[in-house]
Nucleic acid binder design. Structure first.
Length: 796
DNA sequence: GATTAGGCTTCG
């Protein structure tokens, strides 16, 4: 094995190397030199994807930089390092930017690209025949940055004031963001973010930062943020200096607010962060607060002025395509726009989002029309996400100002182009503005619930066609009244096993009265639970698509094994692999006469240990998949199709994490090819949302669906419980399937709500909000009922 | 390791 890892917990890197080895410096390298007994020490500045040469040999290239001890780096500190064959395969999978390596057993040759890349005139080459060894220094703690790292040779970064920049140099800078553009796709291959920065030397510099991965761009969220750029190349454009990423460019961003925590934001997994950096951030914050104009105070929908441009931080409630170059975004920020504003009409069915929620917020949302390049961004936004719309135009529809007859109607427009930073940014949930917004929205929602009354019940209801089959299946049949249960205590004195979370002003309606009323309506009821379906608790969990509203059963392990067996039987040639994407290994099973199991290890991710790696598997039973998912973070079942990997179908989960299975919607998903090497590694995230989005899969949500039969002594009523947000039971539907303890907890609750052995009169009383809605088919129209805004009392 | 864009508001 040419690759050896040494842990930082075991001491300093060089102290762990074999004592006989002596260190070679960059100046010692020469084609005539013998590297036996010697090693070269360097940080990985850059690494390129592993490729296959014309002769079928694998090649991995990295640029190494000798750790610098002085204050400023020498001119040529970087050297190209080329790994061949098996060495390339192994090192290419493991080595990443920022790693510290010690290399032995290499040859030196002339670098064919030295004149172009300005690096060392020679390059290092590692071939298996020379028995090379690559020692990698592994940090035990990789998730967070380290404040001090005394045992690792750390490059001493020097920062150039913006007034001292020279064209043609590569520098490190620390400065305040004066202006920025949210990342946008260029006409080339990359995303770009334009950032203008200033520092206490009172000079500004515009930088165009490019990267093929949008997430790798500086994580700037607002003007006043502080950025640290390493290896920024200074160019000249129209007599002005300009910054652009130099080789190995990296960026770290900090909040610019005086007194805020100094938390670095970056997508780099490995980056330095020292005590000095922290004091620089503090100093820059103080300088900016005293010398720069204060950042514009945030505008909300309630404070918006006509004919203005502003940045809006908001939540996306709904979206719809208007035409090829226009998209509608329905957003809210918890405040009410005081001016009349345009409501955009879209074709029925075009609006994506929760109908009920859109209706509930109808007086608080504004319709934003986004054009051209932004329409494409808008299309990919997930309803519910938090966004910042930069340079949103509030346009008054009254063209002639002299005609001030009425209050003007406002249009919210995001014009095409990126001028003035126009754009849409998805804000992470950890963003401080989002946390504040979330609080505002939560309070507003509570407020809304309190003021919502029966007259406000939506007329649209939940009578979507896609839900019909389920509801028809479960449509209440028995409506014969039964004898009144004898109750020993007055009802008002009995505690409830469930309570309502809103609508307390509503009076209780008897089930008999409800049966005589038209839908849709909202009611408050007090009744006992007579029975519920399904009795087998696992069957109450369904897979729901929020996009097409379809509902389906979750296959059990037996069904899944059948599906997997059929797949294996119809597979043409298992094990055909795409080398550029991953490494495969075939696992033989002693007790099996059937097809082999092939495992594919993804090469291009940054995941290093099995616990944070994604594995693809071809063949295998569900039990085997679960076994693997205990060791690997994520398991994706695949099949081979021609020369590439593909997804079999949607009958089985497309992703397994631990005991949790994730399914895709066969109707709404449009699969992207795994052929694209970036597909699975987008953002290097193993989040099911990110993976499913990257694969073009619309993720199905686990929901808990039950039919509850109530009896209040006046009549019986069947109501559906549709618990999508863990509200009713405080239980995650998905966990009912994957966690035995959670399933038992749910069974326990149901036992208490509806004790199987007890007489109905001894069942606990429940207080519930229910709403009625119409379910229509070609011939009939039935009224169904659904429970809402009700929760089980803990320890019911 | 080329290229992209290169803040200084719009068709709507």
């Amino acid at each position: 094995m040419p690759l050896l890892t040494l842990k930082d917990s075991d001491g300093a890197f060089e102290a762990q190397l074999p004592g006989s080895l002596r260190r070679l410096r960059l100046g010692d390298l020469h084609p005539s030199m013998d590297s036996a007994g010697r090693y070269f020490l360097g940080h990985v500045l850059l690494n390129f994807p592993t490729t296959i040469l014309g002769n079928g040999q694998m090649l991995f290239k990295a640029v190494l930089a000798e750790p610098v001890t002085g204050t400023s780096p020498p001119k040529t500190s970087a050297i190209n390092t080329v790994f061949f064959g098996a060495v390339a395969e192994e090192c290419g999978m493991f080595i990443r930017q920022g790693d510290l390596l010690a290399i032995t057993g290499f040859k030196c040759s002339e670098s064919p690209s030295a004149s172009k890349d300005g690096r060392h005139p020679f390059q290092m080459e590692l071939q298996e025949e020379n028995a090379p060894t690559v020692y990698v220094y592994v940090k035990a703690q990789t998730t967070t940055f380290m404040l001090t790292e005394p045992s690792v040779p750390k490059p001493g970064y020097a920062y150039t004031p913006l007034s001292k920049l020279q064209v043609g140099t590569i520098v490190n800078v620390f400065a305040v963001v004066k202006h920025f553009k949210a990342p946008f796709r260029t006409k080339g291959t990359d995303y770009c973010s334009a950032v203008t920065i200033v520092d206490p030397s009172d000079v500004k510099l515009t930088c165009n930062i490019f990267n093929g991965n949008c997430d790798a761009l500086p994580k700037i969220s607002k003007i006043g943020d502080i950025v640290r750029f390493h290896r920024l190349k200074i160019q000249e454009y129209k007599t002005e200096k300009q910054g652009t990423p130099g080789a190995g460019f990296s960026s770290v961003t900090f909040d610019g607010t005086v007194g805020a925590a100094v938390m670095p934001r970056t997508s780099s997994k490995s980056f330095s962060f020292s005590y000095e950096d922290s004091t620089t951030v503090t100093a820059l914050r103080r300088w900016a607060s005293a010398h720069l104009p204060p950042p514009p105070s945030p505008v909300t929908l309630s404070t918006v002025q006509p004919m203005a441009y502003f940045d809006l931080t908001c939540q996306l409630v709904g979206k719809a395509e208007v035409d090829c170059c226009t998209f509608l975004l329905k957003v809210w920020d918890g405040t009410k726009c005081l001016h009349p504003h345009t409501k955009v009409r879209v074709e029925t069915g075009a609006l994506v989002g929760d109908e009920g929620f859109i209706y509930k917020l109808r007086n608080l949302t504004v319709d934003v029309l986004v054009f051209d390049n932004h329409a494409r961004t808008a299309e990919s936004l997930m309803v519910g996400c938090f966004i910042r719309i930069n340079s949103l135009h509030v346009k008054s529809q009254t063209s002639n100002i002299s005609e001030e007859v009425e209050t003007p109607c406002l249009d919210f427009l995001l014009h095409g182009g990126t001028g003035y930073g126009r754009g849409i940014t998805i804000l992470p949930e950890s963003n401080s503005d989002v946390l504040e917004l979330q609080r505002t929205l939560d309070l507003k929602l509570l407020d809304l619930d309190d003021h919502m009354n029966i007259e406000e019940a939506p007329s649209c209801g939940l009578d979507g066609t896609a839900m019909e089959p389920t509801h028809k299946e479960l449509v209440p049949m028995s409506k014969d009244p039964v004898s009144l249960p004898s109750v020993s205590l007055p009802r008002c004195q009995q505690s409830s096993a469930t309570v309502i979370t809103a609508h307390h002003h509503m009076n209780t309606t008897s089930l008999k009265d409800i049966q005589n009323m038209k839908a849709p309506q909202k009611y408050r009821i007090r009744a006992q639970l007579m029975e519920f379906e399904p009795q087998r608790i696992n069957e109450s969990i369904k897979l729901y698509c929020s996009n097409c509203q379809s509902l389906q059963d979750v296959p059990d392990e037996e069904e899944l094994d059948m599906i997997l067996q059929n797949r294996a039987a119809t597979a043409v040639k298992p094990g055909l692999l795409n080398l550029a994407l991953c490494r495969s290994s075939t696992v033989k099973r002693e007790n099996q006469d059937g097809s082999p199991v092939v495992l594919y290890f993804l090469k291009c991710g940054r995941w290093e240990t099995p616990q944070d790696r994604l594995l693809m598997i071809e063949g295998g039973t569900m039990q085997e998949i679960y076994q693997l998912s205990e060791k690997f973070h994520s398991v994706v079942p695949v099949t081979t199709e021609g020369k590439h990997l593909s997804f079999p179908d949607f009958s089985a989960p497309f992703l397994i994490q631990g005991k949790r299975c994730y399914y895709g919607c066969r109707r709404c998903s449009s699969l992207k090819s795994i052929q694209d090497r970036y597909v699975l590694t987008e953002k290097d995230s193993l989040d099911p949302d990110v993976i499913s989005r990257a694969l073009g899969i619309v993720l199905l949500q686990c929901v808990l669906v039950m039919k509850l039969t109530f009896n209040d002594g006046t009549d019986l009523l069947d109501a559906y419980l549709w618990d999508t947000s863990e509200q009713f039971f405080h239980i995650s539907a998905a966990e009912v399937l994957s966690n035995d303890a959670v399933r038992e907890k749910l069974q326990g609750i149901m036992k208490k709500l509806c004790p199987p052995e007890a007489k109905l009169e001894d069942h606990p009383w429940l207080e519930c909000c229910i709403k009625s809605y119409n379910v229509k088919d070609e011939i009939n129209s039935t009224i169904c009922y659904q429970i809402f805004d009700t929760v089980v009392v803990e320890d019911a």
